[in-house]
Amino acid sequence: MSENALEVEGLQKAFRVGAGNVVACNNVNFAIPPGGSMGLVGESGSGKSTIARMLVGLETPDAGTIHVRGRQLGTRERGRAARLRRAKEIQMVFQDPYGSLDRRLTVAQCLDQAMKLHGVTSGTSRASRVSGLLDQVGLLAKHGESKPHQLSGGQRQRVAIARCLAIEPSVMVLDEAVSALDVSVQAQILALLNEIRASSGIALLFVSHDLAVVSEVTDDVLVMYRGSVLEQGNTSQVLNHPEHSYTKLLLSSMPGPCWNPKAVMQRRAAFEAEVAT
């Protein structure tokens, strides 16, 4: 049996809010094969970002396990070596590339630094990889000399992706990574991500509120609401033949032909009443 790039079992996390607990992640299970792609959808507060943060070690799960290529990740990494090892396995791309790039470094310096940190010691081999990486994400050699503020939003997001690729992770977590981009740029980045997973075998976890985006780049999807997975399975199956009333609500909320905001409002009220009972 081939091993999965990412395997999550029984993941659990609650936050204390005031006197009570809010369950942000309730017994979540999923697996992504190498080169696979999974979408995590739901509204704000559904727990999708909490899962992403637990995967990269920014939050500690209360229970459950995370395996990357068969190796279990520790719940709390101690020391530089352990943290670097975890970073090498799972990398994250955020919504706002401007906030995640050091504005004082040129693109080439940024990529160089990531490789240096992860033990590519020879300067010449790093330099040659920089040009390879720029090419891979569709940037020109001259962009290597640019600083983030000289680049457009789409170009910056390409830099953030290149930085992930620089350290060859097994899994890339994209937290709303294309939400802030214009549709034409978004389409290019989505095409790039599809190309990357096909050629490199990196597994993608796509955290997004945008069902249409998720339908374009993922094989499987997880629909979450208030910390629980309501529906899970093949993306086109789930989105074309949704079973859970919440998935249906989400789909009917998307503007498009036959969209009726008033009906969405009523459906949502009905769904919330159903949850309350």
């Binding site: 249409a212 374009e216 086109s236 074309n240 949704p242 789909l251 009917s252 036959c258 008033k262």
Partner: peptide, 16 residues
């Protein structure tokens, strides 16, 4: 360039 959910038949899920 607008992403869309592929082959979405005019299913009851979208109708109100």
């Amino acid at each position: 360039a607008v992403p869309a959910i592929g082959h979405l038949p005019n299913s009851e899920s979208r109708a109100s």
